[in-house]
Nucleic acid binder design. Structure first.
Lengths: 138, 138
DNA sequence: CTAGGTGCAAAAGGTTTGCGGTTAA
DNA sequence: TTAACCGCAAACCTTTTGCACCTAG
């Protein structure tokens, strides 16, 4: 696939060891940005790499998250979802269809926090109805 | 405990059926606002109500969350945490000591979202160092 | 009276781990 | 060459479920 150069570049730049499995996992996340779960990533990866194991997918995801190439999204008690969108963004969760969308809003950090807190990262999650579901006027 | 009147009032006002176990679980969450996990709530509840079961704690928490009396907080892949703070607030997660703090900032919703999205709820999570850990200048 | 809640134990996911073999650097 | 990674299977931990009994309204 033509993504592979981007995948390889990102991996090389991150400094972590480059393996075929990590390329595959990152490739899956870059190809379809629908915030798949680990199991979904596993199933998609198996199409190109039938020998990959679920444990390896978890390991790869962990390495990718740790290196900053992938973000994890947790919603309620549902399984963790992953995305490879490196732009600063928020997530929108549609209560109707369950889909997760990236919302790229520049958060100009208008936070007036109590003193003493050292903020390294802020994360915003929205819930509601996505455009597709809203237009179905359910 | 003197919280019981508040607990009972809140439960009655919520409309869900009032049981001793739900009172106990809500009481635990109101007494110490450290965002315990389900298992922690279970252990604390057992001190006053030795017969309560973990499954019941989960059931109670679910009912309380659904009725809006309790909020659940998910951080990464760690077990879900619960809090009874009904004021609109955000959460701060200390990467140093692992504690979770409520941050009561009035979010004046400065979100410029793409059109089509119907937002019902926004949730903000911060990560960094809490005052206690910052002052230890680690 | 009865719909809904409880307690128990067992099952069901999701995620992690241990280990022998493999591979990127 | 070797530290790190992979695949497999088993373990782990959180959460859910089925069922018989109980209780709030």
């Amino acid at each position: 696939m033509k993504l592979s150069s981007e995948v390889t570049e990102r991996l090389a730049a991150s400094g972590i060891r480059l393996t075929r499995q990590r390329e595959e996992v990152l490739g899956v996340l870059l190809q379809k940005r629908d915030h798949p779960t680990a199991v979904e990533v596993f199933m998609r990866s198996k199409k190109h790499m039938p020998t990959i194991s679920l444990a390896t997918v978890y390991n790869c995801l962990e390495a990718l998250v740790e290196s900053g190439l992938v973000k994890q999204v947790n919603l309620d008690r549902a399984p963790t979802r992953f995305c490879a969108n490196l732009l600063d963004h928020s997530h929108f969760f549609c209560e109707e269809c369950g889909s997760v969308h990236d919302i790229e809003i520049p958060l100009q950090s208008p936070w007036n926090l109590p003193s003493g807190y050292l903020i390294k990262q802020a994360e915003v999650t929205f819930r509601g109805k996505c455009p597709a579901c809203t237009s179905k006027n359910l």
